[in-house]
Amino acid sequence: MKAVFAIPGDIETRTGGFIYERALLMALREAGHDVEHLQLPAGFPDPTAAEMAEAVAALAALPADAPLILDGLVYGAIATEGLAQVRAPIVAMIHHPLALETGLPPQRAALLHRREADNLALAAEVVVPSPHTAAILRERYAVPAEKISIALPGFGAPDPLRTPDQPPLILAVGILVPRKGHDMLLDALARLGDLDWQAWIVGARYDPATAEALEAQSVALGLASRVRFTGSLGEAALRDGFRRASVFALATRYEGYGMVFSEALLHGLPIVTCASGAVPDTVPPEAGILVPTDDTEAFAAALRSLLTDDARRSAMAKAATAAGQALPSWADTAAAMAGALSRSLG
């Protein structure tokens, strides 16, 4: 099947959405589908007028006989009147609605919600990475259930190699934006000063103001010698971090799936996180401790439990390993997308 996969900016960007889409593109090609990668301007979801015009022109020029998979950063932000010019059948790839990003001004969130709802009405099919996102689109965006396909992220084989650091390493992976909750993690770590631990916060400085605030917070809490902001890490360096860690901790405020949690399962790591968005669907209860969003005391207590109770940590690590072995493959993800592409053609 011929198709076009339109993605904004650098496809090698190391965030969950880009990792998902790059792997899905490769898996579709490996399954025999002729899928062209169309790079759109990098400014989405906040494009300049010139970037918006460039994206509309590129999409409108596509032929009508091959489906278009359109990345959600573009889909939720592109002008509806521009999207209406697209002749190709559209498959919207929605990781999570843009309006649900933490910290948006209410007016901006309302605008994004209206635009994404209007744009979703133009989609022939909608593909999401989790049952949670499917439910959100049905309930809040009036997308008919029959239009939605769930394509869970795929993963490789579990990594059995463990080289845990001493003191125990607490690993957090997520770009430096308010939604990832690194500020709450730091507040929780400040309550564990009596214990021996170290922490890495791995993620690109996506929002410079948030990054600077987190670094200042770490210093103010007296954590600078124990918490390392690594920036974005390459695949090998990140794998090394997972192998060295004893606990994975991310105080996220919302996830449309949360691929990094499944990565933690592949490495047999017990997880501490928040019961937000799709996280309860992604993290098995026997492999993780989920606390209410923004409950710093509960988050600190969960970390303390895993750092001080070797038996509990070991049992949860064993459960994480079992869950990692049951994760789907990228071939499964590609098959779900291929079904949506076929249906988009009528």
Rank of each mutant, 00 (worst) to 15 (best):
H132V: 02
P106F: 06
S344V: 01
A251Q: 05
A66V: 04
L233K: 04
R205D: 14
G241K: 05
D295Q: 08
T333E: 07
A142R: 14
R312K: 15
L83Y: 08
V143C: 09
A315L: 12
M26H: 13
D207R: 11
A199L: 05
V56S: 11
E36S: 15
A88V: 10
I271A: 02
A145I: 11
A110L: 10
R313P: 00
G346D: 05
V279M: 03
A42P: 01
G76R: 00
Q107S: 12
S344K: 02
R343V: 06
Y206F: 13
D46H: 14
A278K: 02
T273Q: 05
E286S: 15
A3I: 07
A172N: 13
T102W: 12
E235V: 13
A84L: 10
R313N: 06
R226S: 12
A121W: 07
T15W: 05
E54P: 00
V291F: 08
R22C: 05
I201L: 14
P208L: 12
A23R: 15
G16Q: 08
S130V: 06
A6K: 04
P129H: 12
S149V: 10
P292S: 08
R14V: 14
A49M: 11
A88G: 07
L25E: 03
L104M: 07
G203F: 06
A6H: 02
A278G: 04
Y257R: 03
F18R: 12
T102I: 04
A211E: 05
I94Y: 05
F248D: 00
T282V: 15
A157H: 12
G277H: 01
L120F: 06
G277A: 08
A188I: 08
L83H: 04
E12Y: 12
A121G: 10
P328G: 06
E235G: 02
A66N: 00
A264P: 02
L152K: 11
L221T: 06
A79N: 09
L122P: 03
H132A: 10
L25P: 01
A121D: 07
V126C: 11
I289K: 04
E116I: 05
E30C: 05
F44M: 09
A331R: 14
Q325P: 03
L38C: 10
M259E: 09
I136S: 01
A27E: 11
A117N: 09
